[in-house]
Design a binder for these strands. Structure first.
Lengths: 222, 222
DNA sequence: ACAGAATACTAGACAACGTCAAGTTATGGA
DNA sequence: TCCATAACTTGACGTTGTCTAGTATTCTGT
């Protein structure tokens, strides 16, 4: 299909004139439509031409708003990280008075909940073969911001810990992996195959408790 | 590209006559070539026609060995679960004399190691939008077998636990998620973006220790 | 050893896709 | 009002997955 391997170097070139109101409207509609399309038929079904058909425009109209097929996926990824960060922040704000361990638990729960509520975004966010975050600076910023929320939560459990200690980072990453693994497995893994009667909400609670306790009580952090 | 949504109902129809030796040779070569291709250029680059070109056959030759593009991915998935199961079994066998907690640790480490050593297989194994395991009975069997290895390891830590208790299953799934999350993040996540100096081997050890201890000491299992 | 049948492969066609190129219309700031 | 530019259309090209139809190769029973 003639998809050149050369990266389009991010669509950061700002238009000399601001986009017209009609333009941003169309762009928003196209984005929504593509998320819905992926949700209904899977990632492989996302096609520029199908999007255009659904939006009742020519097959090249989307090409104007997004530099390429990767461009629209990158837009979804950015939206995803912005939403994720917002949910992590709000989860922590809601439990500001709670004990440190409980905050960690709530942040991890928020991560998993985000994934379950935004499956399309979540899946695309972690597919570097489709859209590599490194190529989109603002996306990268929001990804690192979200990660920082988890670092903060762990730091609250271990006020004396040295944030620059490699072991500290390892524990944070391990906890991230725990929440991420639950989300990934529930979304894409054969969980219900192996464990037919599993209730997802209860599962998320159990996992959050297990991981956050391990994180709070770990002796790996000096 | 005319990829119909209708599933080809698995390639389980056994040929009336056994495949010729030349045939299985070609099939094996095509499989290897496709794994290499994915490894080099990513999943999107896997094309029937490119495979054929590399194998110096017509563009329809691969189509004979694999019912469709999904068919070849399904073959990779099957191979992946067979290998994974073998590694889990061997990890446990190697530490049969070890205390129960250590066995759990080793099994989880084996899971993560498998993913890092077989990144192409691992990625395809958990992409139901590309190949849904449920449609391929023998693949399903091997997937459940591999999962059972983890169940056994957890059960060894809690000899009195009731395997049919939902909480037991939840803990097993949570531990699976932990190992799975580490593998997924290291392979596809922006880990090195957020944590530049992270040493993977050390990270895997830390995660395995953290999770297996949590699994061994959890009070969630009655 | 040899005939028949299934396997293994080739060749050509088709629709759909992503993208390039060039042209046309609509919009908003001066 | 003017006009630069955003917003969109039309047409074309090469590549892809898959269907159909045909040819060649290999195995197996007698």
């Amino acid at each position: 299909m003639n998809r050149p391997e050369a990266k389009p170097k991010a669509p950061s070139a700002p238009p000399a004139r601001r986009a017209s109101s009609k333009g941003v409207e169309a762009r928003r509609r196209l984005l929504e439509e593509s998320v819905r399309l992926i949700g209904e038929q899977g990632l492989a079904a996302l096609s520029f031409r199908e999007m255009a058909r659904r939006a009742n425009v020519s097959h090249q109209a989307p090409y104007h708003h997004f530099t390429s097929r990767e461009g629209i996926l990158a837009a979804i990824v950015l939206e995803g990280f912005v939403r994720l960060d917002a949910q992590l922040v709000s989860a922590r704000a809601r439990h500001r008075a709670a004990p440190a361990g409980e905050i960690l638990r709530q942040v991890m729960t928020a991560y998993m909940t985000f994934a379950l509520e935004n499956p399309v975004h979540f899946r695309v966010m972690f597919r570097p073969d489709i859209v590599s975050i490194g190529d989109y600076p603002d996306t990268r910023v929001h990804a690192m911001l979200a990660f920082q929320r988890l670092v903060d939560a762990v730091a609250e459990c271990h006020p004396d810990a040295d944030r620059t200690d490699p072991r500290f980072l390892e524990v944070v990453n391990a906890l991230w992996a725990g929440a991420h693994g639950v989300a990934t497995l529930v979304l894409d893994g054969p969980v219900q195959l192996n464990s037919p009667g599993l209730a997802f909400q209860s599962f998320v609670n159990t996992a959050a408790t297990l991981f956050s306790e391990a994180g709070a009580l770990t002796k790996l952090i000096p």
